[in-house]
Simulated scan of single mutants.
Amino acid sequence: MAFALPVWFAVQDELGQEEADRGALSPFHHLDDEALFQMFHLSRTCIAFVTDSVRLRMKKLPLDTRSLSVDSVVMVALNYYAHGASSAAVLQRAGLSPADSGSIINTVSGVIAGMSDQFVSFPLTRHARASVAFRVEKLCGIPKVLGVLAPAHFKIRASPYDKDTFRSFVNTLGYTSVVSQIICDSDGNILSVEKCSAGSTFEQDLWDSSFRGREMENELHGSYWVIGGKGYHLSKHVLTPVSEPGNDSEARFNEAHAKIYDVMRTTLGSMKRRFRCLMQLGFAQEGSLNNKSNIIKACCVLHNIAIKFSVPPPPIAGKIERLLPGKQHSAPVEVDPEAVKARQKLIKENFSAVCSGQDTSGSSSSSSSSADENL
């Protein structure tokens, strides 16, 4: 994923005469950088970039008989993402009442989620795939990997009086959540975010029904893998750990797999520290999760933008939340023998006693390029 300064300049160019239309300064222009970060968990430059990007898509938001500035409504939404609620001070500065905040947050979240096609990008070109795979192999030694695949669970509230709906939201750790399918790269950039389903949904079901999963399994991205946990089935494109390692090579592979898979845990932990709304998304009903989905996607967009602007997340408070253990179907799963052979070939070529001492940091360019030769 790359945009940084070129996109920034493009945004400024497109704004052009709109700067004159904006007129008044942001209601938060007088705050110092530390106060801004405490309020929004983003830097001043990052906030300006996000606001200008939203302005291109929504000049003004009508509310009752008034028209509100884009600056004001974006600030209300960013404050909600950062803390899980819009503070009275922010609402007062924006000239809004608490009753206004819900509809504003939903509207702004929809706009920022719609920016995911620009700021959340799966590697689609030969060069992009080779670049992502190179960095993964440099980190863990596993070649031909396009990212880390995991179900991301976000707590919600559900009414226990509707027992069927309530049970559908209960995940493997026993709390109610919604789950989205996320893929990240070795640097923690979100490459793909799809689906928003009740927390009891199986990971494999998410993958099978997802746009990205169908693309990968239909060979649209070549002979690459994504790293998946135990809740996924081993396939030609989802690389899972060996359930019972039978030798040192398989043990070394599992260690490498755990190392790259842990990047997802760190990434989600960073997102939840920066955007505390993800710690509790409020009440949800099955079949009407669009607003929750937009908030999750908006936070993914903002997470990637924050990385590009080198804005650190707030410091860690307590333990980083672990990824949920995989939810597996009770019926036995028939493993694709071709996928098993492919994984064994990968292990033999990269994690045998001979290979384990070799420097693989520069080998991924050739292996990644060869994966694209038949595209």
Rank of each mutant, 00 (worst) to 15 (best):
D248A: 13
C196P: 12
A88L: 15
G287K: 05
A306Y: 00
N218K: 09
G269F: 05
V242D: 07
S67I: 13
E217S: 07
M115Q: 01
N79V: 04
S363Y: 00
S69P: 10
L31I: 07
E203V: 02
I183P: 01
G213V: 15
G141N: 01
P325Y: 01
K348Y: 06
E349T: 03
E217P: 01
V170G: 06
L68H: 11
A35W: 04
D208I: 09
E215R: 10
L234F: 04
L56M: 12
S361A: 12
F211E: 12
T172R: 10
S293E: 12
F283M: 02
S368K: 01
T125M: 06
R66C: 15
S177V: 04
D248P: 09
I316A: 11
G174Q: 13
G362E: 09
Q358G: 11
S121Y: 00
A4K: 12
T360F: 04
K195L: 15
Q118I: 10
V242F: 00
V7M: 05
Y232V: 08
S26Y: 06
P313N: 06
G318I: 02
D162A: 13
S223I: 02
L15T: 11
D164W: 14
S235W: 05
Q285I: 13
F309N: 05
L375C: 08
S200W: 09
N294P: 02
K308Q: 09
V226E: 06
H237E: 06
A10H: 03
K345D: 05
Q328T: 03
S109K: 10
V50A: 12
E14W: 06
I227K: 02
E321K: 04
A251I: 06
F211N: 15
S192N: 15
T65E: 11
